[in-house]
Amino acid sequence: MRDATLVEAINAALARAMQEDERVLVLGEDVGKDGGVFRATDGLLARFGPARVFDTPVAEAAIAGMSVGLAAQGFCPVAEIQFMGFAYAAIDQLLNHAARLRTRTRGRLSCPMVLRTPCGAGVHAPEHHSESGEACFTNIPGLRVVVPSSPRRGYGLLLAAIRDSDPVVFLEPTRLYRAVREPVADDGTSLPLDRCITLREGGDVTLVGWGGVVPEMLAAAERLAAEGTQADVIDVATLVPLDAETILASVAGTGRCVICHEAPLTGGFGAEIAARLAGPGLFSLLAPVERVTGWDTIVPLSRLERHYLPGVERILAAARRSLRHG
């Protein structure tokens, strides 16, 4: 057990996966000697050698497409796309091939690949480096979409993603990479890929979200507690497949739900959760479902970033609105 940041935990999970299974390969731009621009693959080349860690040319479509080929041949490629803004070039391969290979071959071939990419704003990065594009992936049937929000969850979820027999898109919030350290046991224990994680139980209002907003939700819950309101806080963590039961069970108790995400409002994955609440959850609701999200704008250049990111104050305001009902 040692204290680790999210990016160190991811590094540890990659090393663990490569250690325990020689089929695991790492490929991507600058993942070798440079150790990845965020250092997520630091030391892997030195430890596992150039036959398992590949610096690719600048070629996102090929990184994703070759991963499909490697996976079909029995390898477990873990591809890194340097920033989510460059992952869109890989979507053709994910949507048309990775997510469908099992179906298209009636199970004869499969695609146990992981595509990792940093996501989200908050680190004053240049243009195209701050998007939260998870909804582009969650609407692709056959693809798992996972977003860790703490070092321990990063470790356990990434191990699970690598060990899974189907393609997983693994989105790592850049602003959490070095935000906190916590003890992470590098013992190979993975987390389930189809379970939301309840971080706090309160019973008065449900705060549900993923990625970069999770610490904001926890901070909001603290503030609410000081006001005498106890919040359930749920990290969705595995967007697809969605563990709606955990969310519905929480809202069955609270009757109130604030959905938080950094991605834009319209068509964001929060809308899927809201739809579940409007369906099977409808008669639990005591107040309208609230969504606290990024605006429906392009992520602004860094100066306005903090006005774009949904933070504690907006979450609190939404929770209070919700609590005023009924």
């Binding site: 803004g85 195209h128 480096h129 100066r303």
Partner: peptide, 26 residues
């Protein structure tokens, strides 16, 4: 302004038909 993260740096008085820089390579 642009590299300092200010939206106003994305407009320039000079060559009006020129493209903005491309960050996504190629």
């Amino acid at each position: 302004l642009y590299w300092g993260g200010d939206e106003r740096g994305s407009d320039f008085a000079g060559p009006r038909g020129d493209f903005p820089i491309s960050v996504p390579v190629a």
